[in-house]
Design a protein around this nucleic acid. Structure first.
Lengths: 187, 187
DNA sequence: TGTACATCAGTGAACGCGCGTTCACTGATGTAC
DNA sequence: TGTACATCAGTGAACGCGCGTTCACTGATGTAC
């Protein structure tokens, strides 16, 4: 074989990583297969020996983003809910969607995709809810419900902060999102 | 003139109304100018005598959605915050995005549009924040900040409920969103 | 009152373009003999 | 050890299609004379 063992797998991984970033930055419809391949250092023709469709890449990219998410990383390192919330709603996260939460970036668009793709996103949501839930006070009445409220506020605030045209309002939204999330957690 | 006075204005209005619904249902990229015109009972060629671009229609449709929003209607009728929140997060609202909040439906996509279009969305956000703010207890320390947190939670929950593939989880998200919003309001 | 012309909202063919996808091909290297 | 062939990741031209936009045209009716 003219490529070392594992070469194809490494190429596929590279494509998935590029896609995970580009989809979050530009939206799924906002970046084409040819551009994705070019950013991975390839030409577009080979794409279909790795994936049976762009949609399949979307699912792989969602998984990749979930696996590499800072959310998950902080959780694995035993970080507190406050750390998670503050990282999620930092200006740096707002300004670099390609490295931020894939759910926040793609939830609307994926709402119009196939059931299978929506299942992928749902799995990510469940995972995040679990992480939040375990960080809530043990005595709390309905931790799952609270976790959902917290994540909704975080995600909503991140999206609003990204789109609003007024810088000051955007900063205020980040702060308000942090406060709301922590508020709900300590109810 | 072969059309009665005001005919062109009425046609334009019809196009804007169709667009306001279709953009919310399918996303802006998800519905083309020709399909929009067909749904308004016209052919696509006349589009550019009403709007200078699809982008201009996007702005008009955002305004239209804001003007006709149930949110605003409830507010004008003196409805309480609880009424607003419960209407916003009803299953019927989740299942009919074409009549629901345009901000929730389009915030991500508009984040990648021109500054002018983002300004239009920002104006809608400011309006909704004002409505929420005036319904918060007078003694509350930072009403605007609280209003932002409430709206973030509402919007985030609506989007999640729309995309998640599990019906039960979706219903739970709506409930959790309501609870979180009301919780923040009474802090 | 009747006729020629002006108006202009709407029509539909056509434009260039980018998209997702297909496919015959390339060429470097491993394997068979 | 040397040569012919098989393998297969990646290439790039080509496909049909739908998009936003342009434009010459239509045809119903108002206006001028």
């Amino acid at each position: 074989m003219r490529y070392e063992k594992g070469h194809k797998e490494a190429t596929r991984q590279k494509i998935v990583e590029v896609a995970a970033a580009e989809f979050r930055r530009n939206g799924i419809e906002g970046i084409g297969v040819a551009d994705l391949m070019a950013k991975a250092g390839l030409t577009h023709g080979g794409f279909y020996s790795h994936f049976k469709s762009k949609e399949e890449l979307v699912r792989a990219a969602m998984e990749e983003a979930a696996k590499k998410s800072r959310f998950r990383k902080i959780a694995e390192e035993g970080g507190s809910l406050e750390e998670i919330v503050r990282t999620y709603l930092r200006p740096e996260t707002r300004d670099a969607p390609e490295r931020g939460c894939a759910i926040a970036a793609l939830v609307s668009e994926i709402g119009r995709h196939s059931l299978e793709t929506r299942k992928g996103l749902t799995a990510s949501v469940e995972r995040l809810l679990g992480i939040i839930e375990t960080r809530l006070p043990e005595g709390m009445a309905n931790r799952r419900k609270t976790a959902i409220g917290i994540f909704s506020a975080m995600m909503g605030a991140l999206q609003l902060a990204r789109t609003v045209s007024d810088k000051k309002l955007s900063d205020n939204i980040l702060e308000a999102g942090i406060e709301a999330a922590l508020n709900l957690a300590s109810k």
